[in-house]
Design a protein around this nucleic acid. Structure first.
Lengths: 240, 240
DNA sequence: TATTATTGTAATAAATTGTTACAATAATAA
DNA sequence: TTATTATTGTAACAATTTATTACAATAATA
């Protein structure tokens, strides 16, 4: 994410970060039967943006992505996938960054690297909603979950980045790790089906879904769950 | 590709290119029933590398990739897919570039941008072998096809980049455009099957393959092809 | 004219997916 | 205690897709 503040003046001078290159992270979580993403907000101006950051001169790109997501979520082990690079020449708009720098008492000259063009590497993360503590950074004073159905207008091409991330997530959904990271440790077959239906945005047939999931050999049935409902109690499952 | 020469001194000074960022292209062609890729060679030293280049300050990333592949192949319309970004901190080795610059009469100081770390965006191209005229660039005096089975030792992580590109190509093979770009205009079902078998590196069953291809509705049967063989003549097909 | 190799496709089998049906419950209401 | 209700687990069957086998239709050659 290009419009990201930096930790100190030597960083702001650009001595420690790669110039022209940034990371944008789409952090997916699942809560209240809704698929959500983490968004940053600059409250003074109401600007919304994806969590993001820069790459230290001696830092692996993947490590930078982990660091960025870790700093915003408090998580250590993170399921991360690099999915696309966004490199159109006109995708960077220096205006928000200039405003933010001015608001922080920095008066950058016009060819300051933070005001130049940025190419951004898109990563998506898949995390356990309940384990995340959203944390703002030095620029954005807000960091919160937003349901995919109600995303506010975003900076630059960030809406497109989310769209692209969602397409990649869907294509990758059969990977057991995706569901593993979005489900709590124990869940019913119905919970799992709801997750799939939410991500794919379509109804699935209960019988076929259950048969399929059980045949994959990735689930272990652990106990019955008495819900208090007037019906048969479902089993609880966990991933093996 | 980071070790790429630049067109003139002002370019070499770095005024026109984004620093720290490069493109590496894996150009796939099919010939003699072999899957091949274009490789550059610096003959004095025997160094082999993928075709690559830099991104002009005002150029879209995708456009830069098209330009790079176009310059090495002479092609205009190119099937290109961005597949991965290679961003490990230690993947860049300044030694070959330093040698090349010296050989060209440039004595760079040690923090010249061409000797710094590069992050590289990988693209793969799928092209008609017969339409390509491999063209060297200012650095590499050789540009030729190499069968995937006989790739010489390559610079830096370029072998890994090819491996990664091949995996993406396989995952994307069902896309009709891939075969469209690797086949001549007219071909037999057997030709097409050989292409699939070569890319996937496994035998396919003739009957099932033919039924599948015909059912896709992307082929048009145009004529018989008398091969001179002592057997029934196969049909020729073209993509609709 | 018989022989040979290869092609196009039908026939059959096996695997996967889609759909319907139904017995087995947990709770609640009568 | 005994229906009633909603939901679950799974079987049964159908439809579709994929795998395998079989075979007639040819171009060339012997």
């Amino acid at each position: 994410m290009e419009d990201r503040h930096t930790k100190n003046e030597s960083d702001a001078a650009g001595s420690n970060y790669m110039h022209g290159l940034a990371i944008d992270a789409v952090v997916f979580g699942f809560h209240d039967n809704l698929l959500k993403v983490l968004l940053m907000q600059y409250k003074k101006s109401g600007i919304f943006a994806l969590p993001g950051g820069f790459i230290h001169s001696d830092e692996n790109l993947d490590d930078a992505a982990h660091r960025v997501v870790s700093e915003r979520t408090g998580l250590k082990d993170i399921y991360l996938e690099q999915f696309h690079v966004f490199g159109d020449a006109n995708r960077s708009d220096p205006a928000p960054m200039r405003m933010i720098m001015l608001a922080n008492g920095i008066k950058p000259d016009e060819n300051h690297w933070l005001l130049q063009r940025f190419i951004s590497v898109g990563y998506y993360a898949v995390v356990d909603f309940t384990k995340v503590t959203p944390m703002p950074d030095r620029i954005f004073d807000g960091c919160n979950w937003y349901s995919l159905a109600y995303i506010p207008p975003l900076m630059q091409d960030h809406a497109q980045i989310i769209k692209n991330a969602l397409a990649s997530l869907r294509a990758n959904l059969d990977n057991k790790l995706v569901a593993l990271n979005l489900m709590p440790r124990e869940f019913t077959m119905n919970d799992l089906q709801t997750l799939y239906e939410t991500i794919l945005d379509k109804k699935l047939l209960r019988s076929a879904f259950q048969r399929k999931m059980l045949s994959l050999g990735i689930l272990e049935r652990i106990a019955k769950k008495w819900t208090g409902g007037a019906h048969k109690a479902p089993y609880l499952y966990k991933f093996i």
